[in-house]
């Protein structure tokens, strides 16, 4: 995890609030650009709803931990900062775990161990270390919101494709005709890898900078 946090991008101090938000949502999207948090990205996106729930749970933890870390950034000694961040994150993950159980036991079963595993999600620790520990509370909140929604967006992208092809439904509603032959592979782990790879390809293509005019084509 350490090497991720070391290279994790930090928004420029002079950047505006909108910039901080957009950076997380799109420019440095945690899944499609930073390729962080692969475990939940691949494991719980077999339906759009699971992906959405996972994304929102992570966003909640991210918002809370970024706020608290930013508030306490002058009080936490440098030497024990990682342990302190983990403690803060684990507190909110426990809370989220209970909240999901209270809201829907079915959803809690579908997400399984992956709710608890939000503790070790690189995105959260990465934002605490690279952003919240050196920025104001307001900016840390915006950063958490951008990164969190960026994560939700990515999980929804994967979850919808996998659910439509694997079950013929979207958010539980049938979208394809009855005779549709379900692609079982899309609900299996292999389908997660395929879908992630294809989405990464799509985003690489969208974000590709236009070729420079001086470059000559062979």
């Amino acid at each position: 995890m350490e090497h991720h946090t070391a290279t994790s991008p930090t928004a420029d101090d002079s950047a505006g609030d909108t910039d901080v938000f957009i950076t997380g949502l799109w420019r440095q999207n945690p899944v499609f650009v930073q390729v962080l948090g692969m475990c939940p990205t691949l494991a719980v996106t077999n339906s759009a709803l699971n992906g959405l729930a996972m994304g929102l749970a992570t966003t909640f933890v991210l918002l809370m931990s970024n706020t608290l870390v930013s508030l306490l950034r002058k009080a936490i000694p440098r030497q024990v900062r990682i342990a302190s961040y983990i403690l803060i994150i684990a507190t909110f993950v426990t809370a989220v775990d209970y909240i999901i159980q209270a809201l829907s036991l079915e959803l809690h079963k579908a997400l399984g161990a992956f709710v608890s595993l939000i503790v070790v999600n690189c995105i959260i620790l990465g934002r605490a270390e690279a952003f919240a520990s050196r920025n104001s509370v307001r900016r840390s909140l915006l950063d958490a919101l951008g990164m969190g929604l960026g994560f939700v967006f990515a999980l929804l992208c994967l979850g919808s494709v996998r659910e439509i092809l694997g079950s013929g439904t979207l958010v539980g509603i049938a979208v394809l005709p009855d005779g549709f032959e379900k692609w079982v592979v899309m609900l299996l782990p292999a389908g997660g890898f395929f879908t992630l790879g294809l989405w990464l390809m799509v985003f690489k293509r969208i974000k590709r900078e236009p070729p420079r005019a001086t470059e000559t084509q062979p």
């Binding site: 032959e181 692609w183 079982v184 592979v185 899309m186 299996l188 292999a190 389908g191």
Partner: peptide
Amino acid sequence: AFLQAAFPTA
């Protein structure tokens, strides 16, 4: 292999 994983029955 893709077909085998996607459409095991067929």
